[in-house]
Design a binder for these strands. Sequence first.
DNA 1: GCCAACGTTGGC
DNA 2: GCCAACGTTGGC
Length: 157
Amino acid sequence: MSRRCWLMKSEPEEFSIDTLKKVGVEPWSGVRNYQARNFMRDGMQVGDGVLFYHSNCDEPGVVGIAEVASEAYPDPTQFDARSDYHDPKSTREGPRWLLVDVRFRRKLARTITLAELKASAQLEDFALIQRGNRLSVLPVTPAQWDFILSLEKRSAA
DNA sequence: GCCAACGTTGGC
DNA sequence: GCCAACGTTGGC
């Protein structure tokens, strides 16, 4: 079985690594992008590693490690008229949006900042830092995963 | 708060 | 099916 790794973005004001630590396992609701959905549906397997990334905040970067804790299943918020994630065009018979459960593994000793990732020649091809990339769920190669985590032990640049 | 990048919508 | 308009993401 080949090793698969992912990166998932969250705005810390909405849902932070500390919140995940507290709750343990969280249904990753609210993904409303087809490419991101397809990664969850077609790519993810239970146990896959996930880099937890804080976006849209003072210090964007990788802040922790989680893992995929379920197969993809329909995101219940798409059916909830009161939810921000409600999708009136989705039906229970043919749900548009899926999610996976995400389980906390550990918090990093420090934030590995976006600036550092961008400055690393080894990460030239990393989907996160490709120009204009807004995907909230994206694949990470094992080599990229290992390199990113090797940065944890270094002092901030 | 600004704005570039990009996805989606809808008129035609 | 094209594409302009619009909305969202997310770094800065």
